[in-house]
Amino acid sequence: MKNGHHWALIIIVLALSIFPIFLTGTPLPDAARSFWESSIGQPRGWVVTLRELSPLLIGGVAVLIALRAGLFNIGAEGQMLVGACAATAVALQMPNVSGAILAAIAGMVAGALWAYPAGWLKAYRGGHEVISTIMLNQIAVRLTAWFVKSPMKDPNQIADTSPRLAGAAEWVPVASFGRAHLTWAIPIGLLLCWLLWYWLRHRVAGYELQAVGANPRAAKVAGVNVSQITTRAMAASGALSGLAGATIVLADQGRFYENISAGRGFDALGVALLAGGNPLFVIPTSMVFAILNAGTSGMGLEGIPKGLSGLILGGLILIVGSLRTKTGGSDE
């Protein structure tokens, strides 16, 4: 019976992902070819895919660390925004390499500060982190929109955007293949995946964090300071989300504008859920999402709206969510 429900879900998700393409009148093979070429089938695709990868990789690790502590960081989106905004502010003042490093740090600090209230509310006031991070997201969108309209706006532009960063973007690539840049953000993201994996498995603090996530009462009885770990995990998650936001500016866009994160925070939640709790799996799953984003934006040229990626992403999250609960322990 339950199996039947799972098959029904998979069929619905497939229908939601493929059927809309027929509505646009674009032949399916053309759509598929466009997807392939604009993601990993052609060098120009790789340019986009690699650009998409870094915030998803780092953002995925960010959401995952919170998830392991039993926290749904729906707020990654807002933390990315404030991180990106803060990084831009610093990088505009210091257009050199040390400025770029400081900018990344500023992004982390901003993200951590933006996540901290959610962790604190959960740990000490019992406020659900999903609610508080949703609220913080909405505030972040408006706060950063105001920044880019007023103090940070490039006076020479009609649109609300910060001035272009000088220097930072040129510094960031580690290696370039034609127009495809392998930026520093990607090795940093890979390193973070491995570090988190090691820390969770081989450090007492990582063990305690996971105990809090799996059963806070049992963790408390085992002498773990649950409130402290909850607050710190949320702040750490925010710091990494802020870093992911900073990379969008420093390694990709080279400027800040309204809603620059464009849903990547929610993508990151999908990346972390799909990774099933293992930081190393964030590497392939963030790649899947990067390809998905690059491919669907490429399909836009064929007249297929980019909303398709939301349909696919949402469906993917549901399938993963249903599989996870299936293998999980018993409920009340």
């Binding site: 105990a211 799996a214 059963n215 009462r217 049992a218 009885v221 999980g328 322990g329 018993s330």
Partner: peptide
Amino acid sequence: HEGVIEEW
């Protein structure tokens, strides 16, 4: 709820 983590 306090003694073990059942999924571990």
